[in-house]
Design a binder for these strands. Structure first.
Ligand SMILES: [Zn+2]
Ligand SMILES: [Zn+2]
Ligand SMILES: [Zn+2]
Ligand SMILES: [Zn+2]
Lengths: 151, 151
DNA sequence: CGCACAACTGTTATAATGTTTCGAAAATGC
DNA sequence: GCATTTTCGAAACATTATAACAGTTGTGCG
């Protein structure tokens, strides 16, 4: 995420939190910034040493901030990677899908209604009530596929 | 899984391994049995103490068996639960979806072509080549929904 | 303001999950 | 039998996540 996009994301986050009456503290802002700055999903323990200037912070510090950001839909957790990624459209709650490149590590967030819909109807057939869908596809992105073929 | 289904599952597993020229050792059989006997997904560390009669086995013992069973498609791993479940139709390789009840813990394995298809086409649009889709839906099963409503 | 309360943060310890490594044992193929 | 490959045992270690408790900061109200 480039510097401009980052600023927009942070401003959006701040506005959303104000609107919702929750506190977007300096620490939460900092964690969101670190997650967004990364090109790839980042683990909690990667963020940790970047929080304190001197000594490194303790795990609960970053997990608490991440929990908050997850609740507010500002970041997503990738269960298959045990890592976090900034949300590209946090304005509204959504069930998204992630395409994870095993080669370069980059992740694309989709918001595909066909997938969400087919999942909903399949669940409905069995009487199941979905709460939180986790859809993560590991594979190879277009760029990396192209590179591999041209070798 | 009842005793009869379990026996069928173990026999199927044995036949599949023979057919594929891989070894279905006593230990692997035992781990598969323990996974299948459970009503719910089981963690690796739950299986561990049931492996040795006297002292409890070391983690790599069960992880090696589980890795084998995963490779052969005899069990699945639920990423959101860090737990394993026996496959209900291991004869052919498949990309399945899991409905996980947060209430009773039971899991239903689906093999829904509409979901798989919509995911494939969404990926294709972005030039992404899927390798391993992970689709797990947390929610409430029909039974538990019914119970909750009748209270 | 000054106090009461709630929310947030720091710190230590611990739990849960998963891997590396090295060596012994067992099965396989000749 | 004997070399080769595969599997298994065991110890140590790595990574991810949570529990518990004390301190600090911010907020609202009189
Ligand atoms: Zn999102
Ligand atoms: Zn890539
Ligand atoms: Zn299956
Ligand atoms: Zn249920």
């Amino acid at each position: 995420m480039d510097e401009e996009t980052l600023q927009t994301a942070l401003d959006t986050a701040e506005a959303l939190c104000a609107q919702r009456g929750v506190r977007f503290t300096a620490q939460r802002r900092r964690v969101l910034e670190l997650v967004c700055r990364a090109e790839r999903p980042v683990g909690a323990y990667e963020i940790l040493p970047q929080l304190h200037t001197g000594a490194t912070a303790a795990p609960p510090t970053v997990y608490r901030a991440l929990d908050f950001l997850l609740e507010q839909g500002l970041v997503h957790k990738l269960e298959t990677l045990h890592a976090f990624i900034g949300c590209t459209h946090p304005e509204h709650p959504h069930a998204s899908q992630f395409l994870i490149c095993a080669d370069c590590g980059r992740v694309k967030e989709l918001e595909n209604e066909a997938i969400a819909g087919s999942l909903r109807s399949a669940a409905q057939e069995t009487g199941f009530h979905p709460k939180r869908p986790v859809i993560e596809v590991l594979g190879t992105c277009a760029q990396c596929t192209h590179k591999a073929e041209s070798v």
